[in-house]
Amino acid sequence: MSEKNQNIKLDKNRFSAPETVWQKLENSLNEANKLKAGLNNLPVYNAPETVWVKIESDLTEKRPGKLIKLGTFRIAAAILVLLGAGVWIYFSLAEETELISYSTEFVSGELQINDWDEEESAFLMLDQICIEKPFLCEDAEFQLLRRSLNDLTEGKNALKNSLGEINTDPDLIAQLAKIEMERTNILKEMLAYL
């Protein structure tokens, strides 16, 4: 049996509650009562007279709540009618209207480098050879290639004129690159004859 339990006296099979319990309970009640008494004595503040003046003024005015609700309902109804009319007009005219669509494409920086004239010196060199040594260029196959090259050169110049200095049309640039590639291939074939 612990020392604490030894202090509890037995009285006809009943345990006696320690006095300390009541002391603690009394202290708690006193503290609670103290606080309660304090709370009961808290001050009451006087409402300013201006509050009633404003309440009375608001009570005299027409209640805006119902008006706003009614107004909102009317606005909502009007919007619905307009939307319905808009949808009806749109679909009724849709068949008669041509659709216009567009897309935006961006040209990469690499494509915007105008490098298609860089190998022009090689073409000029070929021309020079044919002028100086015409017998080297008399072959029928060679002449056929030369006509193709001239056609491609004309096409290239036409595209270059279309592009001008600032045009970045991706389709034109792609065509120009393709033509230049074909010209280069033909040049290689022609050089092989020499």
Binding site: L42, P43, V44, Y45, N46, A47, P48, T50, V51, W52, K54, I55, D58
Partner: peptide
């Protein structure tokens, strides 16, 4: 009830001006 309610409004809001608005 105005004073009791104004006091309650002040104690909850912690602001006399706000308490006036609450009371109204």
């Amino acid at each position: 009830y105005k004073d009791a309610m104004f006091t309650l409004a002040y104690r909850i809001s912690g602001d006399f001006l706000l308490a006036e608005e609450i009371l109204h």
